[in-house]
């Protein structure tokens, strides 16, 4: 109980701070929209091409927006010199992981809720389905599970912002592949059965990396 209460206190603090500055959501969202629009130009704008590459564009956008917001998660903590304040508080390091992961998950979901309709309009695609929502949620959990761990690790290295993508991208390859494939199937109106193997990979990734990251987090944050 105490674990959950303190983790939620950290999440609540991050949300409160985000309400004041709108730093993470605003910048990541703007970035996401710009990526979507840039891709639109890059692929010429013919409706046929776009519908083929759309799932890829969607997930490249979310991946990079995710890196941007995950980076802020601990960089902000470090810039404010508050990480040690969390570390002297009477709780295990895992509480910090849980609180931070939940916060990043919420931020990512807000970004996605705003970016998806824009995507739907620009590419004229039916993204509002239970399938797309499920895929997005599962993939996002995978992103923040690994991303929060690596964000904590990257913040204690030189060239902080550069380190996260280099660690993060190879590890989330299965998430990106699965999310793109499953979204593609969902957009072309395939039934749930066709998506199942991809959803299973996403689910397995989420469970495994929530557990592993939780376990190794204290080594990433310790000085």
């Amino acid at each position: 109980m105490s674990f959950l209460r303190k983790a939620l206190a950290i999440t609540r603090k991050d949300i409160l701070s985000e309400f004041r500055t709108r730093e993470i959501i605003f910048s990541a969202l703007l970035f996401a929209l710009l990526v979507i629009i840039t891709f639109n130009f890059a692929f010429g704008g013919s409706q046929e091409t776009l519908s083929v590459v759309a799932p890829g564009i969607l997930w490249v956008t979310f991946t990079f927006a995710g890196i941007l917001s995950l980076n802020r998660s601990f960089v902000a903590e470090k810039e404010e010199n508050c990480l040690e304040g969390l570390m002297v508080a009477p709780m295990s390091r895992e509480v910090i992981y849980a609180g931070k992961t939940l916060g990043s998950l919420l931020f990512m979901i807000v970004i996605e809720i705003i970016a998806l309709p824009v995507f739907a309009i620009l590419f004229d695609l039916p993204v509002f389905s239970a399938q797309i929502v499920t895929v997005t949620l599962l993939a996002t959990i995978g992103f923040v599970a690994v991303g929060t761990l690596f964000s904590a690790l990257a913040v204690n290295t030189k060239a902080r912002e550069m380190v996260l993508p280099i660690l993060f991208l190879p590890v989330v390859v299965p998430v990106i592949i699965s999310a793109v494939e499953a979204s593609g199937l969902a957009l072309s109106g395939e039934p749930w059965g066709e998506l199942a193997p991809w959803l299973q990979i996403l689910g397995a990734f989420d469970v495994i990396f929530l557990v592993v990251s939780f376990w190794v987090f204290s080594y990433a944050i310790e000085e």
Partner: peptide, 25 residues
């Protein structure tokens, strides 16, 4: 050394999932 160990563990556990995903892909 500590950070590298974290990568070593996470990367190794990731590998079977990568193989599975790329094969299916």
């Amino acid at each position: 050394a500590r950070f590298a160990a974290v990568i070593g563990i996470v990367g190794f556990i990731d590998l079977p999932i990568v193989v599975l995903a790329t094969t299916l892909w």
